[in-house]
Design a protein around this nucleic acid. Structure first.
Length: 501
RNA sequence: UCCUCGGUAGCUCAAUGGUAGAGCAUGCGGCUGUUAACCGCAGGGUUGUAGGUUCGAGUCCUACCCGGGGAGCCA
């Protein structure tokens, strides 16, 4: 341990001075008489140069022996990088090998999903994961700041619950001293009780869904933020959700430039996340889905996919012809390109299978059904920012939602759909306040009344209008980071068929 | 549960039914500013499993196992 060691993040401030660093060897490059050690300490990475002429034998052997992910202590002078402006490097004068790593499995090269997921505990060390998880941290801090600044009180709903609220098939059952209990699916109902006590509250906790779902949007364990506000109606709820999302994206853009760059995230779609978000009623959304405009949009998509596919196939053919009599270095580049083309062709093929189905399902969409994943994706393709869809058919929404006083078929629910096909990140609405109505709803959904007696009390003793929503943390981070899978947004994802490591 | 794509060297992937290959990683050698460094050499294989078709199977057929992402459901 060297308490005087400085953090790589702060290295700029030490330009011209001699400092000590401690961390792990991320990568090593060598030339005659020179080693370039890329050191990572969690806060960032820096290139450390070891010159054989300038160091004693011991330091040189450390550089020579150190392998990928070995732990190192390095001392040296902080100097500007000769080639990159605004970047510093360390000219090493002292080095100690703290721990020699042997055979680190994750090489600086491409790996498959399964291989990496089995080694998630090590995968976390890579630059891409570093960036995602730092953005996750930034998002979490923004969430707390946003609510705390507005006078919300953070309160936790229980994780163990006694009764099944929604379908038991999506609940994880555990043995609770001989009786069945469940891991929570939502803190919603308890959130309402807390809002009646403290006015404006938000929960921030883990949620569990035993859905047998294997898609890029699903985890069996994820974190949800659920604000619940007394004396809020649907419009106030939507206003809050809008401000909330704008704030999160704004903070990430301001504070995570390096991380977004490491992820290759396009900034334009994030920069256009400004108020107001388009608000469509369910009925308007259905109209849009069935419209010729949607058909055209999807047809354009199909056409451009076909074109890209044809161009790639032509390139592939060209490569196949020239590959035989190409120079070695060129052949290697062509091989890499060939693999890239194959991947993209797979994606295009899949999309060309999907989109015509989406086209058909959009055209044939019937009022009253809930939107499927593809319908949501199609809707968001029409806009450049998140959209809010409100006033859904009551039949497809939860029992506790308030009915629209102007149309009894509708519930005062709302969803926020993220752009770029990321889909639902928020679901919520205004809650029913009438005791008799709620009791009838519980019966109608085939739920046991006894389990909800405590909840009914909230309507017996000072029932007031109130509203709230739930934000899926991982889906939000996935969208902000521009990832193609939610599994990278949480340190140790739990999914269908995966509880290790 | 259904649909669909895949399983070849430690890793990522090639291979028109006809001699299983490349890059990376590893080891050795070279190179005084490298950026997934580069150059040279070397080792590394029961092509997921079990059957079948064929003169001949990584390639075709059947069943099963494992994985990817899509539907349903959802944040």
């Amino acid at each position: 341990m060297d308490r005087s060691a400085v953090s790589i993040e702060a290295l700029q401030e030490y330009a011209g001075t001699t400092v000590a660093l401690q961390g792990w060897l991320q990568n090593k490059r060598a030339s005659k008489g020179l080693y370039f050690l890329v050191l990572r300490d969690g806060s960032g990475t820096v290139q450390c140069v070891v010159s054989q002429k300038e160091v004693d034998h011991e330091v040189w052997s450390v550089a020579m022996e150190a392998t990928q992910e070995s732990a190192l202590w390095l001392k040296g002078t902080v100097v500007p990088h000769p080639r990159h402006q605004g970047v510093v490097e360390l000219h090493v004068t002292g080095a100690r090998l703290l721990s020699l790593a042997q055979g680190y499995p994750i090489t600086p090269k491409a790996h498959g999903v399964e291989f990496l997921m089995d080694r998630r505990h090590l995968w976390l060390r890579s630059r891409r994961q570093w960036a995602v998880l730092r953005i996750r941290n930034r998002v979490i801090m923004s969430i707390h700041e946003f609510y705390q600044e507005r006078g919300f009180v953070q309160m936790d709903a229980p994780i163990l619950t006694g009764s099944a609220v929604e379908g038991t098939s999506t609940l994880f059952e555990i043995d609770y001293f001989g009786s069945p209990a469940y891991l929570t699916q939502s803190g919603q109902l308890h959130g309402e009780a807390m809002a009646m006590a403290l006015g404006k509250i938000y929960t921030f906790g883990p949620t569990f869904r035993a859905e047998k779902s294997k898609t890029r949007r699903h985890l069996t364990e994820f974190w949800m933020i659920e604000p619940e506000m007394a004396f809020y109606d649907l419009d106030m709820n939507m206003d809050l959700a809008e401000d909330f999302i704008v704030r999160i994206v704004h903070d990430v853009l301001r504070d995570c430039e390096t991380e977004l760059e490491a992820l290759g995230r396009k900034l334009t779609p994030l920069q256009s996340v400004q108020k107001p978000f388009p608000r469509l009623s369910y009925s308007e959304a259905v109209d849009l889905l069935q419209s010729a405009k949607t058909q055209d949009l999807l047809q354009d998509r199909i056409d451009s996919m076909r074109q890209e596919g044809a161009a790639l196939k032509a390139e592939q053919e060209q490569i196949r012809k020239t590959l035989g009599h190409a120079k070695k270095w060129k052949r290697r580049r062509m091989d890499a390109r060939k693999i890239e083309i194959n991947h993209r062709l797979d994606e295009i093929e899949e999309e060309l299978r999907n989109v015509p189905q989406w086209q058909a399902s959009a055209a044939a969409f019937e009022w009253g059904r809930d939107f499927g994943g593809s319908d949501e994706t199609v809707l968001t393709w029409h806009f450049d920012r998140p959209i809010i869809i409100h006033r859904y058919p009551a039949a497809v929404k939860a029992f506790y939602m308030k009915r629209d006083p102007e149309d009894d078929r509708l519930a005062l629910g709302m969803d926020v759909l993220a752009p770029e096909g990321y889909g639902e990140i928020i679901g919520g609405g205004e809650r029913a306040t009438d005791l008799a109505f709620l009791q009838r709803q519980v019966d109608a959904h085939g739920l046991p009344r006894e389990a909800f007696e405590w909840y009914f009390d909230l309507r017996r003793y000072g029932s007031v209008p109130h509203a709230g929503f739930g934000l899926g943390l991982e889906r939000t981070v996935s969208w902000v980071c521009g990832l193609d899978h939610i599994r990278e947004t949480i340190p140790f994802p739990r999914m269908l068929g995966r509880v290790y490591p």
